[in-house]
């Protein structure tokens, strides 16, 4: 019997409060392993993980790879540019071929929403979603929640505001789902063109004024402008965006109490966040990166470390 009630991590949508708490608690233990003189444990020896990244990524890919290595899994990296996908092979064929080489886990990033769900239906392997288009990015939300929990002790009742491009952000959706499950209050803030209509149905509050949001939250998660995923004309110019939604020191000074600042990276310094805010003592941006490895170790341990019925007695 495994500690999680799921085989895959496709998104946080079907993860319960107990599941998320188990992951965050396990991640704290993993963090301690990362601080040891030998930051490596033999736990996932014999487990093979394929990192199938079909969209560019630095942080997430490196973070997953490090997590896999810290747990002694065998890892295989797969980049789309050097693979047969560029010769026209379909995603399913590529995945089936990789799986035929006996692998256990696929960590996957793809530009199409739902692609990990599609693979989960066709493969026996455990699938971990590392970002699918503008849909979900569960491990990012988990590491954000881990960072917030370290700072505030608990997530219940915490007031978190997500600022920026909510429409194109998988980080936003996973954060909204995860934080709501954990009992936090979530506000989204951004220009009307970058906030999906009907988002209130997810139980979040909407504001179009950053100054107003600053007045009533404990932490701000500043999202990157997803310039590569946007069509033109959603806002007049980067300069104007910065004018209204850029997080500056001057804006933050109006907060009733110092706010904790998160950013999933990579930052567009001077656009959604200024350097003096990003590098300030209230920024936990680099802690997020450290926690990212721990969270991914926890997810890998909890999913790949559970007893697998199809491979009984496999040690």
């Amino acid at each position: 019997m495994s500690l999680l009630t799921h085989k895959h991590l496709l998104g946080l949508a079907d993860y319960s409060e107990a599941d998320i708490t188990t992951i965050l608690d396990t991640a704290e233990r993993m963090k301690e392993i990362l601080e040891r003189p030998v930051p490596k444990v033999p736990t996932l020896r014999g487990v093979t993980v394929v990192n199938l990244f079909m969209e560019s990524s630095t942080r997430t890919r490196v973070s997953f790879e490090l997590a896999e290595k810290r747990l002694s899994a065998d890892t295989l990296n797969f980049a789309v540019s050097s693979s047969s996908l560029s010769k026209g092979e379909t995603l399913l064929d590529t995945a089936l071929n990789i799986e035929a080489m006996k692998i256990d886990v696929v960590v996957m990033r793809h530009k199409s929403p739902g692609s990990p769900h599609f693979l989960a239906r066709h493969l026996d392997s455990i699938i971990i979603n590392a970002g699918d288009g503008c849909h979900e990015h569960p491990t990012q939300a988990l590491l954000d929640m881990m960072t917030l929990r370290q700072k505030f002790g608990a997530l219940k009742g915490l007031r978190v505001c997500l600022v920026g491009d909510i429409s194109h952000s998988r980080v936003a959706l996973s954060n909204i789902i995860g934080l709501k499950t954990m009992g936090a209050q979530v506000t989204v803030c951004g220009p009307a063109t970058l906030i999906p209509r009907g988002i209130e149905r997810l139980g979040v509050q909407v504001t179009h004024s950053l100054d107003e949001a600053i007045q009533r939250c404990d932490a701000l998660n500043v999202l990157r402008l997803q310039l590569e995923r946007q069509e033109a004309g959603l806002f007049p110019s980067l300069r104007e965006y910065h004018q209204y939604f850029g997080l500056t020191r001057r804006r933050l000074e109006k907060a009733p109490a110092p706010l904790t600042i998160l950013h999933p990276g990579p930052m567009n310094r001077g656009v959604e966040i200024t350097s003096d805010v990003a590098d300030s003592e209230h920024s936990v941006i680099l802690q997020q990166v450290t926690n990212g490895v721990a969270v991914r170790m926890a997810v890998l341990y909890l999913l790949a470390g559970a007893k697998m019925p199809s491979t009984e007695m496999k040690v």
Partner: peptide, 11 residues
């Protein structure tokens, strides 16, 4: 034995 144990151990 953690992958053969009946119950996955908590870390």
């Amino acid at each position: 034995d953690f992958r053969t144990a009946l119950k996955q151990p908590l870390v």
